[in-house]
Amino acid sequence: MPGAVEELLRYDSPVQASGRVTLEPMVLGGVEIPAGAFVMALLGSANRDERRFGPDAGELRVDREDAHHHVSFGAGPHHCLGAALARLEARVVFERMLSRFTALALDGEVRWNGRINLRGPASVPVTVRP
């Protein structure tokens, strides 16, 4: 289950982008960025980078071995303080739900909350197959 949680975080990150202001001039990808410039890191896009996750980076694969290399919780000094708790909560929810309801299936369209950042489903209609 921990690998599945990491893949779900990689595949559809709740935080899609993060803005920063440069403190000094820098060159990134051959482009000069002056000090004081606003830059936007697209975390959701980075999590689908084929150079890091392979040609199937756009597919959900709960057995993906390197899924934990996602940047859904940021990195370095900007790493989310609640990341460990979020991972634990997700693992416990999925383990208990799947052990109790062994035949879950989608029962309609997933409805999203409509936010760009901290996005997620507003409702996920499910049914239990007989």
Rank of each mutant, 00 (worst) to 15 (best):
A103F: 03
G19K: 04
R91T: 04
L28N: 01
G120K: 08
T127K: 13
D56E: 10
F101C: 08
E7H: 13
G120Q: 09
V71K: 04
L60H: 10
D63V: 00
T22H: 07
A67S: 07
S45W: 10
H69P: 05
R129A: 09
L23C: 07
V92W: 01
H79I: 15
F38L: 13
G82Y: 11
V15F: 01
W112L: 11
V62Y: 08
R51F: 11
R119A: 05
V110I: 15
P125L: 00
L88E: 06
V124P: 05
V71S: 03
L8C: 08
S18A: 14
S18D: 13
D49Y: 08
F101E: 07
A75N: 11
F38C: 15
I33E: 02
T127A: 14
T102E: 08
M40H: 13
S72A: 03
G54M: 09
P55D: 06
D49L: 10
D12W: 15
V5N: 11
R61P: 01
T127P: 11
L8E: 07
S45V: 10
L23E: 11
L9G: 12
E109D: 11
S123V: 14
R48I: 06
A86F: 03
Y11M: 03
A90H: 03
V124A: 09
W112G: 11
L43R: 01
L104V: 00
E95A: 07
L106N: 12
M97S: 12
V126S: 00
P14F: 03
E95C: 07
V31K: 03
V31G: 02
L85H: 02
A86L: 12
V5T: 10
G44P: 06
L60P: 03
L60I: 08
V39N: 05
E7K: 13
L88A: 04
V21I: 03
S123E: 15
R20A: 10
P55L: 07
A84C: 04
P34Y: 02
S72C: 01
M40C: 13
N47W: 03
G82P: 14
A84Y: 02
H69E: 12
E24I: 05
P14S: 05
P121G: 02
E89S: 12
A41Q: 06
L42G: 11
P34Q: 01
L81Y: 06
V92R: 00
H69N: 11
P121V: 02
G58A: 10
D49R: 09
F94M: 07
N117Y: 04
V124Y: 05
R61C: 06
E89H: 12
S18T: 14
D63A: 02
I33V: 03
H79W: 14
A41K: 04
S45Q: 12
A46K: 08
L81T: 04
